[in-house]
């Protein structure tokens, strides 16, 4: 196979790695308020990294799709800097708080609009709702085989070869293309794009198409929102920490050791 056409689905979410003190819950409005910048959901970054490695090996094209109520091209431009060839933002107020089925549906419409593809990669789960189903649903909608939890992906002629994590170790599976694979962190972090490369890119902007609901969905009724009954803060996890003081590491170690002695 010469040159592969990959689509990567990448969601934009508030940085999931901020400390919990930066996250609060508005119980009345049923909203999670995260005091953090937006990022690409980490597993979607892993998916992009996997795509770039495949492209490096065999050439081809990577298209990144990102769907949301409002999607920031500044957050997602990084995908182009890292090695994607095209970025399509799928945004519309109608896309706010969609349930997983509807997200998969809109993505499937966008992918049909794009036309030809060989491989679709998504993250194993999004870093905000942690649902872990959009990838598999999307494959069902498109009627293509799907493989989840990939830790490495290879293309061999018209087949995709995946090592996936299973409870006893790993399993090697294969499927014919086109196929969808959900990607886990074991494939490795998205390569870092140096600042100078980012600056260069800003000077030669890539056009970023935006598709809205009317471009993709004939019947808006088909889109369902998450029906939140209630949103609450998590149970308080704090404990009163007893700090072990000491002027040298050995002194602290000695005190800690006697603590364990009482435990044991």
């Amino acid at each position: 196979m010469k040159g592969i056409n990959i689509i990567v689905c990448a969601k934009q979410i508030p940085d999931p790695e901020v400390p919990f003190s930066n996250v609060s819950v508005d119980v009345e409005k049923k909203e999670v308020i995260v005091d953090a910048p937006n990022v690409i959901s980490p597993y979607d970054e892993n998916a992009l990294e996997a795509a770039i490695r495949i492209k490096e090996e065999m050439g081809g094209k990577i298209t990144v799709l990102s769907l949301g109520r409002k999607v920031s091209d500044t957050v997602l431009r990084k995908t182009i800097a890292a090695g994607a060839d095209a970025l399509i933002l799928i945004e519309d107020p109608a896309f706010e708080r969609l349930d997983s089925n509807s997200v998969a549906y809109v993505l499937s419409r966008a992918i049909r609009k794009i036309g030809a593809y060989d491989l679709i990669l998504t993250g194993r789960q999004a870093g905000d709702w942690d649902s872990g189903q959009v990838g598999l649903l999307l494959a069902e909608l498109l009627g293509i085989p799907s493989i989840s939890l990939a830790r490495s992906i290879k293309i061999k002629e018209d087949r995709v070869l995946v090592e996936k994590t299973v409870p006893v170790g790993y399993e090697v599976v294969e499927a014919g293309l086109p196929a969808l694979v959900t990607v886990s962190n074991e494939v490795g972090e998205l390569r870092y794009v140096s600042r100078s490369k980012m600056m260069g890119l800003l000077k030669r902007p890539t056009p970023i198409p935006k598709w809205g609901a009317k471009d993709l969905v004939d019947d808006l009724e088909r889109l369902k929102k998450i029906q939140l009954v209630e949103l609450s803060p998590p149970p308080d996890m704090r404990r009163a920490c007893l700090f072990i003081e000491g002027s040298t590491p050995q002194e602290k170690a000695d005190k800690l050791a006697s603590f364990f002695k009482e435990l044991g």
Binding site: P19, F20, S21, M237, R238, R239, A240, C241, L242, F243, I244, P249, Q250, K252, A253, D254, L256, A257, F259, F260, K261
Partner: peptide
Amino acid sequence: CNMFKVADVGVVEDYKALIPALVKKLEES
């Protein structure tokens, strides 16, 4: 760090210094 907020016991120390000292003490006693 957050871990101290949920911990019962905390030691602010570099593990490279603390762990060997702790192992030594545990073995002595």
